[in-house]
Simulated scan of single mutants.
Amino acid sequence: MSTAEATHLIDDALWSRTLTHQLAAEMADSTLVFFYADAQGHTQSVELQLLTPTPATETRGMCQFSVRLLGPAALLLAQQTYRARHAAQGDFALFIGPIARTAQGIEYEACISHAL
Rank of each mutant, 00 (worst) to 15 (best):
T52I: 11
Y108G: 02
R68K: 15
L32Y: 04
R85Y: 00
L76Y: 07
A39L: 15
D38Q: 04
L48M: 08
V33I: 12
D91P: 04
E5K: 14
G105E: 05
D12F: 11
T57F: 01
R68W: 14
P72D: 11
E47F: 08
L23D: 09
A13H: 13
E58S: 15
F35I: 01
Q49D: 08
A4G: 12
Y36H: 03
A87Q: 10
I106L: 01
Q22W: 06
D38V: 07
T18F: 05
G105W: 10
L75E: 06
V46F: 05
R60M: 15
Q49P: 07
E109Y: 03
Q79D: 13
S66V: 12
T102L: 04
A100I: 05
D91A: 01
Q40P: 08
A115M: 15
A88C: 07
D91V: 02
A39N: 11
L70A: 00
I96N: 07
S45R: 04
T102D: 09
T3A: 14
M62P: 07
G71M: 07
T52K: 13
H21W: 10
R60D: 11
D11I: 00
A115L: 15
Q22L: 06
L14D: 02
Y108T: 06
L50D: 07
A74R: 12
H8D: 02
F92Y: 07
F92G: 08
D38N: 05
L48V: 02
H21L: 05
T54G: 05
P53V: 02
F92T: 03
P72A: 14
A73K: 14
L19K: 04
G61N: 03
T59Q: 14
D12V: 10
P53D: 02
R68Y: 14
A115W: 15
S66E: 13
P53L: 03
A24R: 02
M1C: 10
D11C: 08
L77I: 06
A39W: 13
T54Q: 00
V67M: 11
A78P: 12
Q79M: 10
I112M: 03
Y36L: 04
E26K: 03
D29C: 08
R17S: 09
A24T: 06
A74D: 14
T18D: 03
T81W: 03
A103R: 14
R68C: 13
Q64A: 11
A88T: 00
Y36N: 00
A84I: 00
P98H: 04
S16L: 13
I106A: 01
M62F: 12
G71P: 07
Y108F: 04
F92N: 05
E5L: 12
E58I: 14
L51G: 08
L51Y: 09
A6G: 05
L19D: 05
L76R: 13
R85G: 01
A56K: 01
E5D: 14
A13T: 15
G97S: 10
D12C: 00
E107W: 09
M1R: 13
A115F: 15
A103F: 14
L116K: 15
Y108A: 03
A37P: 06
A100M: 10
R17T: 08
V67D: 07
I106Y: 05
M1E: 07
S16I: 10
I96Q: 07
